[in-house]
Amino acid sequence: MENKRALLKRRIIQLAVIVLVILLGAVMFVVGKEHTILLDNKSIESGGVTYNAFQVVEVQVDGRDKLELGPRDRDKEVVMGQRHKVTVTYFDKYYEEHVVVKKFKVPISQKMVLISLPAVAAELDQSVWLTNYEAPTLLNIPKDEEPIVSDDLIPLDF
């Protein structure tokens, strides 16, 4: 009887460890997932209003280097995890500097998201300026394979 209880206890601990490890894996999945953020300085229409592209705009994702974009420019940042911050710095027609900081969360299933900078600057709703982006299939064609980096010793291909 005592033996049986010890065995049960052991089984429970084993199960708990397995569950914990799976949970850790899930956390790692969320934390480590890479997302590509496309930063788009292009006129956008929302609710009948057109928000024009900036002549020049500075944008910064998290604490990274600032990117400078001209009209219809698009750049990208590859980030890890879901929660990020975008800082948009622009000048209005009176040459006055404005800084808009937005925090956002990238849905886990989206590999690439597009952020419309004019919409961010206009402080529109997040659903307007943050959209999922499906790369056209043409972009999916991979580049030539990289030269192999290895400590090649012997052609071991039995």
């Binding site: 490890v21 799976i22 850790l24 999945f29 480590g32 997932k33 890479e34 890890m80």
Partner: peptide, 17 residues
């Protein structure tokens, strides 16, 4: 899956185990 960095390594280890 596009998991990068240390979390990617840890996840790879968890899968490999």
């Amino acid at each position: 899956w596009g998991i990068a960095g240390i979390p990617g390594m840890v996840l790879a280890m968890i899968i490999s185990t």
